[in-house]
């Protein structure tokens, strides 16, 4: 099958509703949500462990968007060479 080239690549902006998930991590920019000491975890105040834990929220959102927006072009090549392309 033909490899993708400019003739069968999309030209405009592609929007997928899943991309909205990328806004969720921005909640960490609203200090009143976490600007307190209680409840503590292992003696660490909430302000610190909550923001540390938020790393996983960010990662989850990006992974979901990555998975749900994998497009057909990747599918076309998947059979032949995807495993070779890893790492």
């Amino acid at each position: 099958m033909a490899s993708p080239s400019s003739s069968n690549r999309p030209t405009g902006l592609r929007w997928n509703a899943w991309n909205l998930l990328l806004l969720v991590p921005l909640l960490t920019l609203y200090p009143p949500l976490f600007n307190r000491i209680e409840p503590k975890l292992f003696g660490i105040p909430f302000f610190y462990w909550a923001q540390l834990a938020w790393v996983f929220v960010g990662v989850t959102c990006v992974v979901i968007v990555y998975r749900m927006t994998r497009d057909d072009r990747a599918g076309n090549r998947r059979g032949s060479t995807e495993s070779e392309r890893d790492a």
């Binding site: 990328l22 921005l26 960490t28 920019l29 923001q51 540390l52 929220v57």
Partner: peptide, 14 residues
């Protein structure tokens, strides 16, 4: 540095 280093990646991905 924490919120900074967390939101940078979702923002920059696309």
């Amino acid at each position: 540095a924490m919120p900074y280093a967390v939101i940078a990646y979702p923002i920059v991905l696309l």
